[in-house]
Design a protein around this nucleic acid. Structure first.
Lengths: 150, 150
DNA sequence: TATTGTTATACTCTATAACTATA
DNA sequence: TATAGTTATAGAGTATAACAATA
């Protein structure tokens, strides 16, 4: 029963944030999920799709679909990887970077409100707990049961 | 920066749980989102679609699409509401209820793992914090800014 | 052999706008 | 006038399986 309560609260919090984010970014023509990709790219010069899949906890084919959309809009570039000819080197275009910066500024207040809904000093512990949940729920890379039997 | 960190952790935790849930329910042919609807219905004899929209923080037309799928599978019934002829009275069929109970049992371990990823006594505060976030992020019913200016 | 990414395909979820019928 | 729900429509995200090229 406690687990279900937690699951419901987690869902409600995430979906609320997700929709507020989507609403905030409507005028930029970018979805909340796409923003996540742009945000990851903004922290590096370039990333392979494989790395982006890991960082966004996505799927190779899902991520590709998103990148194609972002590429069409001119926000993202996929070049040949310098050392690995299988891989693609994904990076923000100049337009993509400036758009991301605008969106980042535009969403400051939303992040402020997110933090403001917590008690002082509560954020740190919350983030830690959420990260532990995420780790527990991460897909088994091999046959291991995450959080399962010894 | 703190807000973004929190947003990322919230997303990672939710998506992890969501995918584990989907994976767990693959063999039942029911998605994690559909399970949420079944779970709400399992707590009442019947609900209107309007009430279900509120409880699942969904959209009238999204919810309808889900109900149509669940109805096709014989899990759910939509009857004429006794007192309001506009409304539909949605309830689990016998098959829907027994399926839900099977799924509930099948997902016990997942909920146990969810709770086990927390420190003892941490769950309560976490749920409270998540609910506060959800309340802050709830859509404005009118023109009020949730968490915004006075 | 394993890995990176693509393609084809299909389905769920999501949402908007215009609509019907009741309240 | 407002509310409950439907319809049409569209697009995003998700995932699987088979595949090609490269490591």
């Amino acid at each position: 029963m406690q687990g279900h309560e937690l699951a419901k609260a987690l869902r409600a919090a995430y979906l609320g944030l997700h929709r507020q984010t989507d609403a905030q970014f409507t005028r930029w023509g970018v979805t909340a999920n796409q923003f996540v990709v742009l945000a990851e790219l903004s922290e590096e010069d370039a990333l392979t799709q494989r790395e982006l899949v890991t960082r966004t906890t996505s799927d190779p084919s899902t991520l590709r679909a998103m990148l194609v959309l972002l590429e069409r809009r001119g926000f993202v570039e996929r070049r040949e990887h310098p050392s690995d000819k299988r891989a693609r080197s994904v990076s923000l275009t100049r337009k993509g970077r400036s758009t991301f910066e605008g969106m980042w500024a535009d969403s400051q207040d939303l992040r402020r409100r997110l933090v403001a809904s917590l008690k002082p000093g509560e954020a740190k512990g919350l983030v830690a707990a959420l990260k532990r949940i995420a780790a527990t729920m991460a897909p088994d890379p091999d046959g291991s049961r995450p959080g399962g039997a010894k």
